[in-house]
Design a protein around this nucleic acid. Structure first.
Lengths: 202, 202
DNA sequence: CAAAGTAAACTATATGGTGTAGTTTATTGT
DNA sequence: ACAATAAACTACACCATATAGTTTACTTTG
């Protein structure tokens, strides 16, 4: 019933947003003209400008949208009684699930494509992203506090882990448009990463 | 003497190339107009077009240029009599030297900025780059053949190492315009990476 | 003098954004 | 149930600006 009730205006707006997501992702913001956008959304150009004052406003709206979709806090808790490999593997797998999701990759591509030459803003966005790589960090700290792993620089160790993950589950998708990982690939990556990490720090 | 003798035409050409390198790197190809380029190079626009038929031709020339500069094959040889950590660290350090050089980062930024939305071409360029990550691979194979490390999937292990390196010596410079690593940072990264690798596979 | 450079105007096209006049849709008072 | 009204949509012309590339008429230089 909620789906039927949408006003025309609401529908148009959604069409615009969908079209923008699609075009911006595929061709980038700069090479997507507002005319083309309106055409894809099957909406008059004027309507686009009725909903979003400028192109930049549309882009900014999308950035906000994507953040909401992409950022799911994952809570992985350290368990002193369970095998380290098993629980780390699980935590990593969840992290991969976030990083390697359509939403996250789409958002990252939008941001990178749009801000590639604006180092300042890009750095900020990257900071934002990094603040969500916190589940693994907490786990490392907990395991460290429990004395089951020995890490000198906790931040650095966490970064190493993230690099191992992103090298396979993020950068190839961002740069070469590689397909998302299959569940098997995710599990394998989680396993290998956990093993490497523990080999070093356990 | 070589520096004095250059013809005016040659000088102009170089000025154009320098300006293009600079502008393309800083603002990207798309946002650098040929007018602006000529202005920066302190050369008339027509002269630019005398040397390069189109903007794309200029870009392509630069891509070639950068490849020549950036690609130095590094030969690191496995030594059966030396400590593994010491020699691996050395090889990694050389690899970092290549990846984290101005030339390599500049080239990568040019390519990525220009081809970000052309997945096909981008993939090709990435392939090219990867074919030069061969020194570490050779070393791993040799050490493996010598029985001093135990790696099931050699390619994958090499990738893991590269991810650890690039996570710190490539992506931050590409994306957030972080400064190049200092010699100390390079050594530290090489050490940490080698340690992690050997912890896992020795 | 011939090759190369220069400034400046010019062409053709694309694009972000606006203005207008007319049409559709939803709401509301009777 | 229905006409009136406001809001939103459409088509389309229009403006200002930008940009790749060309042409021209003139100058510099080896």
């Amino acid at each position: 019933m909620n789906t039927v009730k949408k006003s025309v205006s609401q529908l148009k707006r959604e069409a615009i947003i969908e079209a923008a997501k699609k075009m911006f992702k595929e061709q980038g913001v700069a090479s997507t003209s507002m005319d083309k956008l309106a055409e894809v959304a099957q909406v008059s150009k004027r309507t686009v400008y009725n909903h979003f004052a400028t192109k930049e406003a549309l882009v900014m709206y999308l950035l906000g949208e994507f953040w909401l979709e992409a950022i799911s806090f994952n809570q992985g808790v350290y368990d002193p009684d369970q095998d380290l490999l098993i629980q780390l593997r699980e935590i990593i797998l969840t992290e991969i699930g976030v990083i390697n999701s359509v939403e996250h990759i789409d958002m990252a591509r939008l941001i990178i494509g749009h801000l590639f030459y604006s180092c300042e803003q890009m750095s900020q966005e990257i900071e934002k992203m990094k603040q969500h790589e916190t589940a693994t960090l907490r786990w490392i700290k907990a395991a460290q506090a429990d004395g089951r792993i020995t890490v000198k620089d906790v931040q650095h160790a966490n970064q190493q882990m993230m690099h191992l993950i992103k090298g396979q589950a993020f950068w190839p998708q961002i740069m070469a448009c590689d397909p998302l990982l299959t569940e098997d690939e995710k599990r394998h990556l989680a396993h290998e990463t956990a093993k490497m990490f523990l080999s070093r720090y356990q």
